[in-house]
Structure formats: C-alpha cells, structure tokens
Design a protein around this nucleic acid. Structure first.
Length: 430
DNA sequence: CTAGGGTTAG
C-alpha cells in the first residue's frame, strides 16, 4: 500500500487529457485519448471534447467522419464546437453539410458569432451559391455582425465567387472602415469574373484613398492587366514590387508571368519564369499557354517536355495549352500521343476543350472522318466551336464532298450533334 | 481556455 502511494507520488503529473489531445500525432493516438476521456468521464467537459474535435476535424491526420460522430455525441455544444464542425465541413467535399449544421444551430436557438459566419460563408463560397449567401446574409444582419470586417469580407468573397457582383459591391460600399483585405477581395472578385476594367477602376480608387497594396492585391491587379491588355500598368506594378521589395513568391511571380505572356511579351515572361526559385503548375501553365497562344508551338512543347521531368504534375489546363500548340503547328501525331497520355499517364480525364483541340487538329489536317468520330465518342454534345471546326474541315479539305456537311446536318437534326446558337455562324452556304 | 480574412494558370 505505502509502496504504491510513493510510486504514485513520485510520478510526474500527467498533463490533463484535454491537452494530451493536442499532442496527438495520429488518429490512433487520438482514439486512445478519447477512450481515456470516456473512462474518466471528462468527455462531458466541452473543453476536453473540443480538443478532440479540433484534431479530427481540422488536422491533416484527422478524420471528418469521426469528427461528425464525435460532434453528434456532444450534448450541449458551445460556440467553439459548433464553429469547428462547421468550419471543417465548409472545406470538405460536401460544404452543404456546413450550411445544414448552421441551420440546425439556429433552429436550436444558438446565436451564431462572427467566427460562425466566416466559416459558413466559406461554405457558401465553396458551393458558389448566391442564394445561400443571401440567406446567411439575412442572419448576419439579424445578429448585428454586419460591421465585422471578417464577416463582411466573407460576404463580399462569397457573393463574388457566386457571380453576384452587384450584391458583393453593395456590401462592400456599405462598409466605411474598410481594410486592405476587403479592397483586395472586391478587386479580385471583379478580376475573377473577367471584369477587368471595374477591377482596375477600384484599384485606382483604393490608391486614391491612401491604401498601400500588398502582394495579394497586386496579384489580382496583374490578372486584370493580363485580361485587358494593360501591359503599361502591369509593368508599373512590376516596378512597384521591386521598389517596395515585396516578396516575389510563387503567386505574385505567376501573376507577372501571366501578364507578360498574355500581352505577348514572351521574352520578359520567360526571363521571369526562369528566375523564379519556386514554380507551381499555374506558373507552368501561364508560360506554356502564353507560348502556345502566340504561335510558339515548338517552345510550348519543349517546355511541356521539361515539365514532364519535374515533380510538378500537369493538370487539365496544361493539356489545353499543349494540345492547342499542336493544333497551331499541325502536329497530328504528337497531339494524338499527348491526348492519349492524358488519361494513361496522368490520370486526367479529357474534357470537352481537349476534344475540341483534337477535333480541330484532325480536321485541319484533313482527317475529317477521324475528327467526326472523336466528336461522336465524347459523352458531351459538341459545342459551337467544335461544330465550326468540323464544318470548316469539311469545306476546306474535302472539296466536292458536301455529303460530309450534309451528314453533320443530319446528325444534328437527329440530336446526335446538338445545334448550338453559334453554329449558324459557320452555316453560311445556303 | 480554443478559431477567422486576401493572391496564381483557362
């Protein structure tokens, strides 16, 4: 008895179970802590439960379904617990669950706080639903948190990505004590919706009001410059970045490469590309697509070969660039090879754009039947661009064989090829 | 007690 007591006393005190949850490295360890919490009944303590939940909901070695079960077993969740599960579900594969939880929270009479709104608005952004934004927005107004800058930023962001720029702008305009992040969110909203002029006008206004842009702001501004061909402003931004000594990270670097490449300043783009210490797939895509779109097919392909040797994985956009390079250069065999490698080597399922490139490539090369077969084997109906390419191919390469055109028309009538509004543009031989 | 925002390629 006395021996046991001394042993107990001599042992260093264990950290409380709740803090042990924070130290877990794996789900298995966490499950052991969870078990101990159940045994010692401290699982009923919300703080202890919240540490468990945080690990399985948010850590990279966590498990969302375990988190969901854990959450369901918590009798009286507090704000932190509600917010944590909503936050985790908001960036899961099914962000609707976050909205659903949010509604449940309200139904049970729990008042959302500013954190709740930022997380549920993240879910709205991820499902890109303007209606969801509007519903959450009414709750924001009800709660009186409509002046919280994090919440406002979430609203502007989620309205913007749902293509609802009017509502985004309305929320933005109503806030008098804006910060840089809100300006950046609104500018990026315009830029990402291809409304470059509005993005640049807002940027002007931001500068007039005395805000100094950061790298994130400038990345969006450069994106707008790329879209609208404002190379002059783009270069000014480049100078500003250098003068201010802003860190040329991968995002800002990519935005600059994109701006130069899109504006046809391929040498400057390439120089910058080569000087970047770190590149991601967007950087490669900006350069490859820039080369391809300006008629430098060989260089685009060479760069793609280089990319294949890197540890960076190409994505579907890379292949749009590479295949359109093949198309411009008339490289049928190379195009075929790359098209088939998409799925075989990289596990990327070709989309309609990729088929479009191939149909155009085959059609221009006079392989009208092959092109048509490819168009028919897709799971989608051909779009106007593809039909245009097909009809052009018939006209240009099979002179006298008007039955090709007739056959396409027949297929369209039968609904095997869908007639789209743009189609009439090429149907000019009545 | 614990938590949140912005940025790149088409």
């Amino acid at each position: 008895m006395s021996v046991a007591c001394t042993t107990l006393i001599r042992q260093p005190p264990l950290p409380p179970l709740s803090l042990l949850a924070d130290k877990c490295k794996s789900l298995n360890q966490l499950k052991q802590v969870h078990a101990q919490m159940i045994i010692s009944s401290c699982i009923h303590d919300n703080f202890a439960a919240s540490r468990l939940l945080t690990f399985c909901a948010l850590s990279s070695s966590g498990d969302l379904s375990y988190a969901a079960k854990l959450f369901n077993n918590i009798q009286n969740p507090n704000h932190y617990i509600w917010n944590t599960i909503i936050r985790a579900q908001a960036s899961s594969l099914n962000p609707n669950v976050a909205i659903f939880l949010f509604m449940n929270m309200i139904r049970t009479g729990f008042e959302p706080n500013q954190h709740t709104f930022t997380f549920v608005l993240k879910a709205c952004s991820n499902i890109r639903s303007s209606n969801c934004c509007k519903q959450v927005h009414t709750h924001v107004l009800k709660s009186g948190l409509d002046l919280d800058l994090h919440v406002v930023n979430g609203l502007v962001r989620s309205y913007s990505v749902s293509n609802d720029l009017n509502d985004a702008r309305q929320v933005f305009d109503q806030i008098s004590n804006k910060n840089l992040n809100i300006w950046t969110t609104m500018i990026s909203g315009y830029a990402q919706n291809f409304r470059a002029n509005e993005a640049l006008m807002l940027f002007d206004q931001m500068i007039l009001e005395g805000y100094a842009p950061n790298g994130a702001t400038l990345a969006s501004v450069l994106s707008a410059c790329a879209q609208s061909g404002c190379r002059e402003l783009g270069e000014k931004v480049h100078v500003f970045i250098k003068e201010r000594g802003l860190e040329m990270g991968v995002i800002l670097g990519t935005a600059l490469v994109h701006m130069y490449a899109k504006n046809g300043a391929l040498l400057r783009a390439k120089k910058l590309f080569d000087s970047m210490p770190e590149r991601n797939i967007a950087t490669w895509n900006a350069m490859i697509c820039g080369l391809a779109n300006h008629g430098h097919a060989e260089e685009a392909l060479n760069l793609f070969r280089k990319l294949e040797k890197e540890q960076t994985m190409p994505n579907d956009i890379t292949f749009v660039g590479v295949l359109s390079a093949c198309c411009h250069a008339g490289l049928i065999d190379v195009g075929h090879e790359i098209f088939s490698s998409m799925k075989r080597v990289y596990g990327i399922e070709p989309k309609i754009e990729h088929y479009g490139c191939m149909v155009d490539l085959l059609g221009r090369g006079g392989k009208v039947l092959e092109a048509e077969q490819l168009a028919k084997q897709m799971v989608w109906k051909p779009d106007a661009v593809m039909l245009g390419a097909l009809l052009a191919a018939c006209k240009n390469h099979e002179a006298g064989r008007w039955e090709d055109v007739t056959r396409l028309r027949k297929l369209m009538k039968e609904g095997k090829l869908k007639k789209t509004p743009g189609w009439s543009l090429v149907d000019d031989d009545q």
